[in-house]
Design a protein around this nucleic acid. Structure first.
Lengths: 159, 159
DNA sequence: CTCTTCGTTCAGAACTTATTGAACATTTGG
DNA sequence: CCAAATGTTCAATAAGTTCTGAACGAAGAG
């Protein structure tokens, strides 16, 4: 029971970190495992067995990872179904998505409307936040582009 | 029962958005209310009554908002205890804290160790993520500084 | 066309987390 | 000091979420 492989332990640790963001543990376990497994692609059966999860949990969790752009399906030659792997550009896709910030900026804009508009007294807290989120929303895509550009310059390897 | 003030409705909406980040609803309600209430400072009693929360929930929730740097206590002249208000620079404090990214970068570094180091085959997924988080960790504080600089130039008002 | 394998769905069980409310502590005015 | 008001803590409860497992569906091999 305490005999877990290093990969399995890593998956559990990843689950803890991801849970901190409000994501389901199974999601974090799957992602962690897929980050360190060998080979880098795994079938549902391998994931279920390796992580001690039910087929159902793997199915649900992997769909979540797929729709959020972190994993993708890859065909497996001598195998009935498919396998999953982490997308090499996963993090870029996630980071460049400014939707999260838009939700906040809109919340602040609605707040300003509630308190009686831009020029109502005592609205600094809302204006600062609104302006900050607008700034972030604008700048984050640029930041990601800069990373990509700099990273090309260095060495992009396999995958 | 469906007769909620605009402020109260806003608090509920804020709770929905913040819940999406994995935070407790009460936390989001308190923050939303404090963003639009008049006056901008509120006692525990006012918060409890205004939001329909117990004293306990207000106490726990406000401590969380305090420790995360979003709210602070302010003295109230003709009143026994204290009141709370949103810090005008709240969002800056939160954003400039690069701790969240460090947790991820460290997770990726541990992953590289698990798979056998930097140069092991099939580790691009981990290296890209590690480098990306390191980049973000480095650049986000700069970004926040730029915002502050530009914002000074414009007009900072009350608060 | 049938059989087998693999994947998905979903109702219910198991678990986790948030909230309450009452007891306890703290502060301040008298 | 005492009394009154306010704030905090925490065990129990309520609410919500995740996970499982069995039934169902799909797709390829023979």
């Amino acid at each position: 029971m305490t005999e877990l492989t290093a990969q399995r332990r890593y998956a559990e640790d990843a689950a803890v970190v991801l849970s901190g963001l409000g994501l389901p543990p199974a999601y974090g376990k799957l992602l962690g495992w897929l980050l360190v497994c060998d080979p880098p692609w795994q079938t549902s059966g391998q994931l279920a067995e390796g992580l001690g999860l039910s087929k159902g949990s793997v199915s649900t969790g992997m769909r979540l990872l797929e729709t959020s752009g972190l994993a993708r399906r890859v065909p497996v030659p001598g195998h009935r179904g498919h396998a999953y792997e982490v997308r090499p550009d996963a993090i870029i896709r996630i980071a460049a998505d400014a939707t999260k910030f838009r939700a906040f900026r809109e919340l602040m804009e609605r707040g300003l409307a509630v308190v009686g508009g831009e020029d109502a007294p005592g609205t600094e807290r809302l204006r600062v936040m609104r302006d900050f989120y607008a700034f972030i929303e604008r700048e984050v895509p640029k930041l990601v582009e800069r990373f990509e550009a700099e990273y090309q310059g260095k060495g992009e390897g396999d995958g």
